[in-house]
Write a protein that binds this DNA or RNA. Structure first.
Length: 172
DNA sequence: GCCCTGATTGTTCAA
DNA sequence: TTGAACAATCAGGGC
């Protein structure tokens, strides 16, 4: 992970629907004005579970991954992500349904994978919650003599979901 | 030095 | 139903 991710632009989905020229006008300033929003976002990110599976890329993002490599090769001097994003967006729109199909297939696959991971994640969460609850009731029973017992008891079932998907590259 | 921004589209989730 | 958030990327700029 690169740590700070630029969710700034994407957050303006409504704005994103507007012409680019509209959008680039003092965007950052406006956002800086919304410091409270930023704060909230920060808090949200802070409390976000790092173990939670990341959202799967959409077909466009799958395409973008590939496009970036190509774009870099063809434009080694252009480093701005905004340029890549713009170019990718234009190219994406120019693609036919047929050309988009493989990316959509990949995205679907990733999505399926994501759902699996989410399942496992949710199960883990439930198990943890249950463990906590039983732990709570246990401590209610034990009341005051547990101090020494430690937390070894709540060993989570961890990786029962080995995620052995192994990417069977089926595209064309 | 750390954190945020920009630029894009599609998907997901919450209200 | 609608709209916000987030997924990747990384140079550059602000504080």
């Amino acid at each position: 992970m690169k740590g700070a991710r630029g969710k700034g632009a994407a957050r303006n989905t409504a704005e994103a629907l507007r012409p680019a020229d509209d959008r680039k006008v003092g965007k950052r300033k406006a956002l800086v004005d919304q410091s409270s929003i930023r704060k909230a976002k920060k808090e949200r990110r802070a409390m976000k579970d790092p173990n939670k599976p990341k959202r799967p890329p959409s077909a466009f993002f799958v395409f973008l991954e590939e496009f970036r490599a190509t774009f870099k090769k063809e434009n080694p001097n252009v480093k701005a992500v905004s340029a890549v994003g713009k170019a990718a967006g234009e190219k994406w729109k120019s693609l036919s349904e047929d050309e988009k199909a493989p990316y959509e297939a990949k995205a679907a696959k990733r999505k399926a994978d994501y759902e699996k991971q989410m399942n496992a994640y949710n199960r883990k969460q439930e198990t943890a919650a249950n463990g906590e609850e039983s732990e709570k009731s246990k401590s209610e029973v034990n009341d005051e003599d547990d101090e020494a017992s430690g937390e070894e008891g709540q060993q989570q079932p961890d990786d029962e979901e080995e995620e052995e998907e192994e990417e069977d590259e089926d595209d064309d």
